[in-house]
């Protein structure tokens, strides 16, 4: 066991963790932040995407001990304290960017990273950036549309599917 200290969604936490505790298990089981989903647990699906020191990472493929001293953001930290959705979350709702919602936390975290690096991405750039995020419901179309809308681009010409 080793003690780790990190900031999660702005709040300092200190816990004892085992060497083999994954970030997903730490967030979900220790901190009860169950918005970070475990879809595949094999680094394929991106449902567990979080930000560590501002970078998008798959929480299932990082140990909690490696996040010692880091600033971590999860889906729970994306909306305002009163529950008001951020611009990306709102766009997912407005453009029907989810069906079952299981992949959505990872999609929103990936979209946030993309728009930070590239505030006005093209459709091709959005699709390329989502390479590591799998959705089994939507066919991606409305997810891409929602992210383009969240970037402030006009999506009215993109047909709903």
């Amino acid at each position: 066991m080793a003690e780790v200290t990190m900031k999660v969604n702005g709040k300092a936490v200190t816990k004892s963790v085992k060497g083999n505790t994954l970030m997903t298990d730490f967030l979900r089981d220790e901190l009860r932040l169950t918005g970070t989903h475990v879809g595949c647990d094999t680094s394929q699906c991106g449902a567990c995407n979080i930000h560590v020191n501002g970078s998008l990472v798959k929480a299932c493929t990082m140990f909690a001990a490696e996040a010692d001293g880091a600033e971590v953001s999860t889906i729970e930290g994306q909306s305002a304290a009163d529950g008001t959705l951020n611009v990306i979350q709102q766009a997912f709702q407005d453009h029907h960017g989810l069906q079952c919602g299981f992949c959505t936390p990872g999609m929103v975290m990936a979209a946030a990273s993309l728009l930070k690096e590239n505030p006005k991405p093209s459709e091709a750039e959005v699709r390329d950036y989502l390479e590591g995020n799998i959705c089994r419901c939507t066919g991606y179309h409305n997810i891409v549309k929602a992210i383009l809308a969240a970037s402030g681009q006009d999506v009215s010409a993109i047909a709903a599917e």
Binding site: S43, K58, T61, L114, Y129, E131, G132
Partner: peptide, 9 residues
């Protein structure tokens, strides 16, 4: 290589 999240680690 891989995808954006993989490239960050």
């Amino acid at each position: 290589i891989g995808d954006p999240a993989v490239r960050n680690r």
